[in-house]
Design a protein around this nucleic acid. Sequence first.
DNA 1: ATTGGCACTCTAAGATGTCGAGTGCCAGAG
DNA 2: CTCTGGCACTCGACATCTTAGAGTGCCAAT
Lengths: 340, 340
Amino acid sequence: MSLDDRKLEVLRAIVEDYVATQEPVGSKALADRHQLGVSPATIRNDMAALEEEGLIAQPHTSAGRVPTDKGYRLFVDRLSTVKPLSPAERRAIHSFLHGVVDLDDVVTRTVRLLAQLTRQVAVVQYPSLTRSTVRHVELVPLSPARILLVVITDAGRVEQRVIELSGDVDEQLVADLRARLGGAVQGMEFSAVSSAVESLPAAFEPEDRVTVSAIVATLLDSLVERREERIAVAGTANITRFGHEFDAALAPLLEALEEHVVLLKLLGEATSPSTLTVRIGHENPDELSAASVVTTGYGPGDRALATLGVVGPTRMDYPGTIASVGAVARYVSQILAANS
Amino acid sequence: MSLDDRKLEVLRAIVEDYVATQEPVGSKALADRHQLGVSPATIRNDMAALEEEGLIAQPHTSAGRVPTDKGYRLFVDRLSTVKPLSPAERRAIHSFLHGVVDLDDVVTRTVRLLAQLTRQVAVVQYPSLTRSTVRHVELVPLSPARILLVVITDAGRVEQRVIELSGDVDEQLVADLRARLGGAVQGMEFSAVSSAVESLPAAFEPEDRVTVSAIVATLLDSLVERREERIAVAGTANITRFGHEFDAALAPLLEALEEHVVLLKLLGEATSPSTLTVRIGHENPDELSAASVVTTGYGPGDRALATLGVVGPTRMDYPGTIASVGAVARYVSQILAANS
DNA sequence: ATTGGCACTCTAAGATGTCGAGTGCCAGAG
DNA sequence: CTCTGGCACTCGACATCTTAGAGTGCCAAT
């Protein structure tokens, strides 16, 4: 039994109506609201077929139908067309992101913008640093055994780490190391820093090498090996709009949003970096199996340095959300490209 | 009509029972659960008096009594004794805050600890910088008309600001200014920086003074005049435990928690810096008029640099919460003192 | 001042009944 | 073979009613 065009059209109508009304939709309502050119009875037959395929389901025997995760999936993959943004939305994007300077500024404004546009929960990962270049390295002694390492990047971003040393260290040594470090890595891409500094310890007196190695190791750790971990979240209040299915699952959802580790994994899992991905219901990790997630990569030019997206109920306006996420990502990418 | 001791004892019993059960408490239940030595009928008379005074109220005619905000206030001020922390709680505090290095680390761990201890929403303000001293000032040209200003403090904290200049600026001038700035403010308390740099522009060529003034102004703005604005929040998921009174007020509450401006005002309003303050229900700004807030200052030694606290339902365990907030603040203050 | 008794009030929780939306199936028309 | 109208059936939503019980206020007695 294959699904002919009309059946798919019925599915589309069900998804659209359910998203709009948040109530199970019946055959009569469908016939009224859409010009399908057939009677409710026919639609009922089609619905039976769709249910057979697992694309829709009834909450209880005598109720209308609701799309299943599988139904949404088919809708997103084959039935939805890109919904162009409204002029008001375009204006919002422009005014929100106009006149940003700082990288942090870009991220915080973007996350708020996304939350407001989609009326859902927005999540933006801070751009990874692997493609940035080092503008300046600073070492500041805090106490005899503690040093503050500060790295300034060309994107106007500052990374800091406190290094705890096993023994006291000479101020002169620190100054010396700072000079050499600066000379070695200035203007260099983060990914290239690793090889540039590996020979550094050898240039120092044997008794200092342990200290130097520790500092170099921290530098590498914070810049290269440790994946960028910061995330901004906004629009948490919108979960109250997600509907009553979530009343029970509220606590786990809030926890997941606070636990940035989960979110990072979620954002990181996007299959292809610059394509837009939609994960529906059970396709997500358990904590979010009642939600859908729309993500996409962004970054200057075509290089996706990080991911942004929104989290919402499975019954979300997919075309609208996809359009917003895509547009914001493109616009932010332009800004980053212009500023780098 | 004055309130004799037994009436106050009845109030205490009502508060304690209501906090524990979250249900209106009646005269019979009170007589059973507490050794008041009188019959339910007598308690009823006392309750009538307490209601007369506006300390308790009935949700509806034939229900038990519930404390009013005024009732909680009296309970907190005069009836509650400090509840000592359990050994498990002490252990939690120690293990949570053991081995911190970074100031950011202290804050994020503290906020999580507080949320976990009190099972409510924890809020921690990052320590204000006015009492810190400047360890290092760095100026990094990002593009001809943009300069990154970085200030490193003795608390291991880094402040950054991008300065957008009206015209292009010479690299040599930047280097010169950096040297002079460093010489002028190094090791100085933030509050003293203002007077130390005001004469700086005069030392430069007239045509450079506009630029120099702009940079100096930004420095002052970010260090002195602008109050420290960052805040950490944790335990949002606990609002699901706040009870059904909050079901309707969830969205505003979540918005308030996300809108750090509101929180900052809240934390800043604490009357006396190092004393613990409790604000109950309507004593708070409108957004939080259904909640209570327990805050206290903290900082190295006895100087309160910032505020931390928790937000919970009016029917919270005040003695326990107060004890936890106080203990955490003291412990964190010790850590800060040891590290400075 | 305290107490037991008592009538009264009001909510929460079931029980019952009705309404209507929605379904599945079938026989007949195109 | 597909579509349609008709029809009996199911089941949740909602309104109404009843009951049980908790809690109260008041009063007369101690």
